[in-house]
Write a protein that binds this DNA or RNA. Structure first.
Lengths: 226, 226
DNA sequence: TATATATGTTAGACTAGTCAAACAAATTAA
DNA sequence: TTAATTTGTTTGACTAGTCTAACATATATA
């Protein structure tokens, strides 16, 4: 049985490596920042989790999860996201309120509880933020995130977030009809100025690469090809 | 903010004193047994909780909750019992499965969560074991438990549990039309053999003292007289 | 009332998780 | 290729919660 703290380290490591589009390992400082503790603390814990065969760790090198560590991390992610879904759907919480409570609820130990909750919610595939929920077997679609700029012409993707949070930017996002979970189809890229032609809700738009770079997406089509 | 452990001490103290029909204070050994730790540990914690003004504690004397300690204990009891109700009603847990999970859930910190849960369950007055659930203001009917054997002739009481869990016993309970929350009226006690005449759902029955001793009840009439 | 038994307390030790500060290695830039 | 900077590690210390073992007080009983 792992402590709350150990579970949190595994979860952070998962988010920083497996759920990241860009890296598959994480450094001590990076983990410390993510967890809100000091690097020294992370260092101790990495050694401890290595002993338990849950993380791959070597002095002065980046760390990652072992197969077993990953399995546990997925269980925690599953719990977190199911609870978030429960809070929004059954208890009318808003998106921004759920995280803090789900951080607590994710550590409750009861397989039956979580499977029943899954059933009550009708086996959802994604939480209110659009993040994938692993099923009871631990299977999950890990859709790597990237920006709309990187999306391949012809693919259809889903918006999952933004990088820029300025009012001007968000206003434009809104004007285009974009929001979390909105489907976007990339029609074409102009060679001479990198403008991107996209379709949102059946409507065509042409966006700049600068704008596209601020939109975070996941692409099921890209992932299936792997 | 109290730790899980501190919360558990307050809860135990509440159950051992305020919710007990017989005592209003608890000793160190008694608390230790209830919490599953050693008396020395309880001793340290009592001193700590005294510092925080949550318990009344003096060396070599019995302890009890302060007003503030009681308030917090009631919040925990409320959470515990609402979660139990949720598990049984919404996730089809059985009575005997809920306790362990509720022990974990009761420590989740979120006023909104618990009030929304209360609402989802339609503001129940009692949990699946028949124990009273305090409302959002912390008001609760504390009905001391006793056995049907101890009930006063003429009073009407409510069954809240059983002591015996054998199939033979439960079968007989069922045959009499008894179940949790069932109202029972005590009509008479025979002097020569202690048989008890009761009325359940308008039907008269005569039960043995041995049987009556296994039925746990609460009596609003007795409590009001205090 | 003297003694045996109950109950309660203290002291010292251990573990988990954390940090600050000093130190070491690796990387980047001059 | 040396120096500056970034990143990672170690050491020693602190807190919370727990325990064992020794000790102190209170209560019950002979």
């Amino acid at each position: 049985m792992l402590s709350f703290t150990e579970e949190n380290y595994l979860k952070s490591l998962f988010q920083l490596t497996i759920e990241s589009a860009t890296k598959s390992e994480a450094g001590t400082n990076e983990l410390a920042a993510h967890l809100g503790v000091k690097p020294a603390t992370v260092n101790d814990m990495l050694k401890k989790l290595k002993e338990k065969n849950l993380v791959k760790y070597e002095k002065y090198a980046k760390s990652s999860l072992t197969k077993e560590g990953k399995k546990i991390a997925i269980e925690i992610i599953r719990k977190h996201r199911l609870w978030e879904t429960f809070l929004v759907e059954k208890l009318s919480f808003t998106w921004d309120e759920v995280h803090e409570v789900a951080e607590q609820l994710e550590h409750i130990q009861s397989k039956k509880l979580i499977d029943k909750l899954d059933e009550l919610l009708n086996f959802p595939n994604a939480d209110p933020h659009g993040d994938c929920i692993p099923n009871a077997k631990g299977e999950m679609n890990i859709l790597p995130r990237k920006t709309l700029l990187e999306e391949i012409v012809g693919h259809q993707c889903k918006m999952v977030g933004v990088k820029d949070n300025s009012a001007a930017f968000l206003k434009y996002v809104d004007k285009l009809g974009l929001s979390i979970n909105q489907t976007i189809k990339v029609k074409a890229k102009q060679d001479y100025d990198q403008q991107i032609d996209i379709v949102i809700n059946g409507k065509k738009h042409s966006i700049s690469p600068k704008f596209a770079e601020q939109i975070i997406i996941v692409c099921p089509t890209c992932s299936k090809k792997k």
